[in-house]
Write a protein that binds this DNA or RNA. Sequence first.
DNA 1: CAAGTGACTCAGT
DNA 2: CACTGAGCCACTT
Length: 110
Amino acid sequence: MKKDFFDKVYSIVKRIPKGKVTTYGHIAEACGIKSSARTVGWALNSAKNSNLPCHRVVNRVGALTGKIHFGDIHLMEDLLKSEGIEFNEKGNVILEKHLWIPKKSKVSKI
DNA sequence: CAAGTGACTCAGT
DNA sequence: CACTGAGCCACTT
């Protein structure tokens, strides 16, 4: 499967604890492609059909850029608020409080 | 094989 | 402070 990279993204996104968020850049870094956060976003684009909490993935400033493709624009923000995520006056997630950095745990080669 | 696209990020103007 | 251009990687056409 060439989707080995996908697997890593999925594993990481799935492990985001409730009430926490992470950024594309951190996921990318944990996947070993820190230079390409876009690829992470693209991966999620294909993963949006999965049960991944993609609403917990935001860009580096905490903006919910993914909501555009997430479907319901307000749903994403609502889900985060339901989990205890706080937003600043700009409508961005307060990464200072809720940023969760994924561990570079190696994906078990099944 | 080459060019185009993308839910990002950084640096320059 | 806002906008643009370039760089990055993987996938599609």
